[in-house]
Write a protein that binds this DNA or RNA. Structure first.
Length: 646
RNA sequence: GCCCCAAUAGCUCAGCGGUAGAGCAACCGCUUCGUAAGCGGUAGGUCGUUGGUUCAAAUCCGACUUGGGGCACCA
């Protein structure tokens, strides 16, 4: 007897093992037709899988949460079958589902181009129409290797060879075609909704390893229905509209050009935004007991040799030499490097004079401008650049102070993110990696202290085993933005290697020299990148305190010019960023233009307002206008534009 | 760095072997107008750079540069 509990709580009894399909058929023919797979005690299985014991079973249809993943994985297989039919000699390798679709990596000498997509998609639809049965087989390893080798599928054969011994090797066959795969899959290709679309082709390394062959990856998106597909494509268009590069240009925030690859030309409005962010961080950090410093941009190469960066990050460092002949005579072959990070500089400041335990913790903050030669393929708008500024700080403290410092930092970070409109923060805890510096005793202490700090600050984290830096454990902070994307920004790292390397010490209560611990921490990460994230988060519609132009005073006719200028000047005197629009244009035109420019507030002044010393206030995105006295308006706007108080 | 794609007016794009085009923006007039585009006119380009093919190249081919999408990288 096998008793099967269905999601509604009802129980069905069978005389012996029963397949998913038989179960669905027993419940109803409609369900049997719609069934794609089953979930047995939470584990997804083929519809043909036999349920041998009492279990809780769900029938997965396109409505089920697990359906999309199945559909996408099947889509990858159908893509691979179509490609191998159309392009003989192409090797299959690996093709999983992704968050919005699937991809499949192929090995083939000739490139695939987007022009091939229509042809491949058409063949995929044909395969769906063929309604090929998808069946699962268990093969002995030798047979699989022989089979794949005979087909010229060397990647697959290599993979089979490396499967852990004892692991079952399953083959999924659909029609003439087959692939080694863990499954599960739909019962036949005909069950696959035709709501898929090939999106792009890209290079990808075999096994994700740069030193191995480069494969061609074809990406697609797949959904349970045409409507869902359409919605997804629409969302992609919407995401494109908030692209920081596009908004940066439209709002005249910044530009980039060929002669300064990886750097940013900040325009007046963009720099206003930048300073609003920087000044906010400056105030927060000051209030949290940090002292701000500034360390050199250019340091002797020997300094970086001593710190270990010269060797470890050789490819990523900019080396600089003076051009003048006399300098060469004087300095010889002396070379300098632009700093790629701030920590070694901060240690130098710590090293000046004798530090007492009474001085600790010392918190050095710096808006540190760093240069790194990022690989060309990594550059991306202002998100990934070669010249950037970190909201960096290093806390020198005793081991006993780690917990308290971690706690204070986490609290500072969380409240800062909140001020910028990010409520959803994911935290990762990276503990000791296999290759590491420092004794196990110190790691025990550092990990425990960091954990206690995070917990005391009320931070929930997921453990990423072995993900810590070689010099200490770390916390990573990921923000989720308005359209659900994640950005890693903040970090907190415990370091007991650098103080050692630079021989940093403090005098303890006992009169002896002790080694301080160094906490590396950043909240925004890179200012440039964070501003890019802010632009995309708000789609350019910044909260008032960040908006580059907060208000525009617009006239109805030129009679209002003098009053408009006065209003603007009063707004400015009250600390608001205000402009006038006195152009000979209709108010409709002005409203439209400043709305598109995402100015949060418009103060319209006509004859009536001028006479009564009033303004008509209109908010971005709103229809209503509010007419109020100028003084009242200024008071209110000043209050609204205040930077977040914590 | 690697693979694919792209580069035409300030922006968005058309033109795809035979004399460089549109809309918006800009500039100049007219219009003084009450909450998302008034009207008319003018100007604007070494078609990313550089080689080649051709009687003829924005258009076809190669190289380079930059950008985009991925992969790899991200102290």
């Amino acid at each position: 007897m096998v008793a099967i509990t269905l999601p509604d709580g009802s129980v069905r009894n069978f005389d012996g093992p029963v397949t998913g399909l038989a179960l669905a058929t027993a419940i109803g023919p409609g369900l049997a037709k719609a069934a794609l797979a089953i979930k047995v005690d939470g584990a997804l299985k083929d519809l043909s899988a036999a349920i041998e014991r009492d279990a809780a079973v769900e029938i997965v249809t396109t409505k089920h949460a697990a359906a999309l993943d199945l559909i996408r994985h099947d889509c990858a297989h159908v893509l691979a079958e179509a490609v191998q039919e159309l392009y003989p000699g192409t090797q299959i390798t690996f093709g999983p589902s992704t968050e919005t679709g699937f991809y499949y990596d192929f090995a083939r000498n000739e490139p695939f181009t987007p022009e091939d997509f229509a042809r491949i998609e058409a063949r995929m639809r044909e395969i769906v129409d063929r309604n090929e049965a998808i069946t699962r087989e268990v093969w002995p390893r030798a047979r699989a290797i022989e089979y794949f080798n005979s087909k010229g599928e060397s990647c697959k054969a290599e993979w089979v060879n490396e499967l852990p011994a004892g692991e079952e090797l399953t083959i999924y066959r659909q029609g003439e075609w087959l692939d080694m795969c863990l499954g599960p899959h739909l019962p036949s290709t005909g069950k696959l909704p035709k709501a898929f679309k090939l999106m792009k082709v890209a290079g990808a390394y075999w096994r994700g390893d740069q030193t191995r062959a480069q494969l061609q990856r074809i990406y697609g998106t797949a959904w349970a229905s045409e409507d869902q597909l359409k919605t997804h494509l629409h969302q992609l268009e919407e995401a494109e509209k908030r692209d920081h590069r596009r908004i940066g240009r439209e709002m005249e925030l910044f530009h980039q050009q060929e002669e300064a690859v990886g750097s940013i030309f900040w325009h007046p409005k963009g720099w206003t935004l930048y300073r609003a962010v920087e000044n906010y961080m400056r105030a927060r950090v000051q209030r949290a007991g940090y002292v701000e410093i500034k360390t050199p941009q250019l340091l002797d190469r020997r300094f970086w040799e001593a710190s270990g960066h010269w060797d470890k990050y050789a490819e990523a460092m900019f080396a600089v030499q003076p051009r003048s002949e006399s300098a060469k005579e004087h300095d010889g072959e002396r070379a300098y490097a632009l700093k790629p990070m701030n920590c070694p500089g901060h240690v130098q400041v710590f090293l000046q004079g004798i530090r007492s335990y009474r001085d600790l913790p010392i918190r050095f903050a710096e808006f540190g401008s760093c240069h790194r030669y990022e690989p060309s393929g990594a550059l991306h708008g202002i998100m990934r650049v070669r010249a950037f500024t970190q909201d960096d700080a290093h806390i020198f403290c005793t081991e006993n102070q780690i917990t308290e410092e971690c706690k204070a930092f986490c609290a500072l970070l969380m409240s800062t993110y909140k001020a910028f409109g990010f409520e959803d923060v994911r935290v990762g805890f990276g503990d000791r990696p296999a290759l590491r510096a420092g004794s196990d005793a110190i790691w025990d202490k550092a990990e425990a202290a960091l954990r206690r700090g995070a917990e005391a600050a009320g931070v929930n984290y997921v453990l990423n085993p072995g993900d810590g830096a070689f010099y200490g454990p770390k916390l990573d902070f990921h923000l989720r933005d308005a359209i659900g994307r994640e950005w890693q920004c903040g970090t907190l790292q415990c370091d007991f290697v650098l103080p050692e390397r630079f021989n940093a010490t403090y005098v303890g209560e006992d009169g002896q020299k002790h080694r301080p611990v160094m906490l590396h921490r950043a909240i925004l990460g890179s200012l440039e990148r964070f501003i890019g994230i802010l632009i995309e988060q708000y789609a350019g519609k910044f909260p008032l305190w960040l908006a580059p132009v907060q208000c525009v005073v617009a006239t109805i006719t030129s009679d209002g010019d003098a009053y408009a200028v006065e209003v603007r000047d009063q707004l400015r005197a009250a600390g608001l960023r205000a402009e006038t629009d006195l152009r000979n244009e209709k108010i409709n035109y002005k409203v439209r233009e400043h709305s598109l420019a995402k100015v949060p507030l418009m103060l319209v002044v006509g004859r009536r307002e001028a006479e009564g010393r009033m303004v008509a206030l209109r908010r971005l995105g709103g229809q209503a206008q509010e007419v109020l006295a100028l003084d009242d308006a200024i008071h209110r706007l000043v209050r609204e534009a205040a930077v977040p108080s914590h």
